[in-house]
Amino acid sequence: MSHYFFAAKIPSETKLAMKNNIDELKKQIPFRRWVHHEDLHITLAFLGAAPESNLERACSLVGGTLANANSFPLVINGLGIFGRKDSPRVFWAALSKSEQLTKLRALVFAACEEAGFQLETRPFSPHVTLARNWEGKFPFDPGKLDQPPLNLEFMLEEVVLYRTNIGSTPKYEPVQRFRLTTLNQ
């Protein structure tokens, strides 16, 4: 069964720049599964397996909520891990603090809850997952997180409802897109 989630879409040119960084990191840091660069995103609300009626309602509510939301800049600027320090479960790219992203996430999250989804209650920790499951022969070296920062700036212009297609590469398929209003600069 497919799983669904709402995410902030990273533009293609930023994904390609990240791919180059990921290719270098793969040579130095052994994780079992690396995320395909086309699948890079910032999760806003993970829905899991979802009945069609709930998805339609969530899309309608998210669309209404984001109708007047503006695009804004984000910066990918560091690395981090989740899980045990010596054997991390997730390796990720960090984002600069952004009140706009926190507000966007809150809007999407609230719309999904209103649509009947019971969502994860952990605090929002915006990141871009790069790899999963440490498989090094030695414990993970936290010094690897001190790589020069990626420092990739991009405009967040779209929220997407994705479907997970296990066994496919890339595995996240856009189901519905929600464009944010681009302000004249």
Rank of each mutant, 00 (worst) to 15 (best):
L95E: 00
Q100M: 09
E99I: 15
T102N: 11
F82H: 10
L107S: 12
E99Y: 15
K103F: 12
G80E: 03
L104E: 03
K103V: 11
L101R: 07
P88V: 04
G78A: 07
L101P: 08
W92Y: 07
S87P: 07
A69T: 09
L95I: 00
P88C: 04
S87F: 06
W92K: 01
S71V: 08
G80H: 04
A106H: 14
P88H: 02
L79M: 06
V75T: 03
V90S: 04
V75W: 06
P88G: 01
L107V: 09
I76N: 01
F82V: 11
A106L: 13
I81C: 05
Q100I: 14
L95M: 06
P88F: 02
L79W: 01
L104R: 02
G83F: 04
F82T: 11
W92C: 01
N77Q: 10
R105C: 06
K103D: 15
R89I: 13
I76C: 03
S96R: 08
F72Y: 08
L107P: 00
L74T: 01
L101D: 02
K85S: 10
R105E: 05
S96K: 09
A69G: 10
L104Y: 06
K97S: 09
R84L: 13
A93G: 04
F82N: 10
A106M: 15
L104T: 00
K85P: 01
V90C: 03
L104D: 02
G78P: 04
G78R: 05
L101H: 08
S87Y: 07
R84T: 14
K97M: 12
S96I: 02
T102W: 14
S71N: 09
L95P: 00
K97N: 09
V75Q: 06
N70A: 11
S87N: 10
L107R: 13
L74D: 01
S96D: 15
S96G: 07
R89W: 14
K103Y: 14
K85A: 13
E99H: 13
